[in-house]
Simulated scan of single mutants.
Amino acid sequence: MERHWKISDTEFETKFTNNTFKPLWFTHEAHLRLAWIYITKYGKEIAFKKYSEQLKAFADKYNADGKYNATVTYASIEIMHKYIQNSNAYDFQDFIKEFSKLKTNFKEIIASFYSGNIFTSKEAKQQILQPDLKSFNE
């Protein structure tokens, strides 16, 4: 079990909002959990705004220059929203069990929407690129 499970969703959100979340705890699964918390609590649009602002602040605090990626952040919220809409889970733990591929195959899921490597693209890091293979609304 990953370390971020030691705290509740409320404490997780508070620590991330206050930029006091432990960087070693912020794994890929923790990214997904934060997106899930925000989408289920605030809806997709507000979730994206909070998620992107706070990820930038987190990266700045820990001198992770070049880590924030606008397109990956946008795609993450869109993909998580799509999966949440098709979920029967009441909490993140059940959700991630239901859709474990989000944890294990996230890059492949994103690659079904984008033909280029948005993870390393300078343009994708700086601005939101729309998918070129299929829409998030399909």
Results as ranks from 00 to 15, higher is better:
residue 15 K to F: 06
residue 15 K to A: 09
residue 15 K to C: 09
residue 16 F to E: 03
residue 16 F to L: 04
residue 16 F to H: 01
residue 17 T to W: 15
residue 18 N to A: 07
residue 19 N to F: 10
residue 19 N to T: 10
residue 20 T to A: 08
residue 24 L to M: 08
residue 25 W to Y: 13
residue 26 F to L: 15
residue 26 F to N: 14
residue 28 H to R: 13
residue 28 H to C: 14
residue 29 E to Y: 06
residue 30 A to D: 04
residue 31 H to R: 12
residue 31 H to D: 15
residue 31 H to V: 12
residue 31 H to Q: 14
residue 32 L to V: 03
residue 32 L to N: 06
residue 32 L to K: 03
residue 33 R to V: 07
residue 33 R to T: 06
residue 34 L to I: 02
residue 34 L to N: 01
residue 34 L to G: 05
residue 34 L to Q: 04
residue 35 A to G: 10
residue 35 A to N: 05
residue 35 A to W: 01
residue 37 I to N: 02
residue 37 I to A: 00
residue 37 I to T: 05
residue 38 Y to F: 11
residue 38 Y to R: 08
residue 39 I to K: 00
residue 39 I to E: 00
residue 40 T to L: 03
residue 41 K to R: 15
residue 41 K to I: 11
residue 41 K to L: 06
residue 42 Y to E: 02
residue 43 G to I: 08
residue 43 G to L: 12
residue 45 E to I: 08
residue 46 I to D: 06
residue 46 I to Y: 06
residue 47 A to E: 09
residue 47 A to Q: 11
residue 48 F to H: 07
residue 48 F to I: 03
residue 48 F to K: 00
residue 48 F to C: 02
residue 49 K to C: 04
residue 49 K to E: 13
residue 50 K to M: 14
residue 51 Y to M: 12
residue 51 Y to C: 08
residue 51 Y to W: 11
residue 52 S to N: 10
residue 52 S to F: 04
residue 53 E to R: 14
residue 53 E to G: 10
residue 54 Q to I: 12
residue 54 Q to S: 14
residue 54 Q to L: 10
residue 55 L to F: 10
residue 55 L to A: 05
residue 56 K to S: 11
residue 57 A to G: 14
residue 57 A to W: 08
residue 57 A to M: 11
residue 58 F to T: 09
residue 58 F to L: 14
residue 58 F to H: 15
residue 59 A to E: 15
residue 59 A to S: 15
residue 60 D to K: 15
residue 60 D to Q: 15
residue 61 K to P: 10
residue 63 N to Q: 15
residue 63 N to C: 09
residue 63 N to W: 12
residue 64 A to G: 12
residue 64 A to V: 09
residue 65 D to E: 14
residue 65 D to K: 13
residue 66 G to S: 05
residue 70 A to S: 13
residue 70 A to D: 08
residue 71 T to N: 06
residue 72 V to N: 08
residue 72 V to W: 07
residue 72 V to R: 10
residue 73 T to V: 07
residue 74 Y to H: 09
residue 74 Y to G: 00
residue 74 Y to E: 00
residue 75 A to M: 04
residue 76 S to R: 09
residue 77 I to S: 00
residue 78 E to A: 03
residue 78 E to P: 04
residue 78 E to V: 03
residue 79 I to L: 06
residue 79 I to Y: 00
residue 79 I to Q: 01
residue 80 M to Y: 02
residue 82 K to W: 15
residue 82 K to Y: 13
residue 82 K to M: 13
residue 82 K to C: 07
residue 83 Y to A: 02
residue 83 Y to H: 01
residue 83 Y to C: 01
residue 84 I to D: 03
residue 84 I to F: 07
residue 84 I to L: 07
residue 85 Q to T: 09
residue 85 Q to P: 01
residue 86 N to E: 07
residue 86 N to M: 10
residue 87 S to M: 05
residue 87 S to C: 01
residue 87 S to W: 00
residue 89 A to Y: 01
residue 89 A to N: 01
residue 89 A to E: 00
residue 90 Y to E: 06
residue 91 D to N: 14
residue 91 D to C: 06
residue 92 F to S: 00
residue 92 F to P: 01
residue 92 F to I: 04
residue 92 F to D: 00
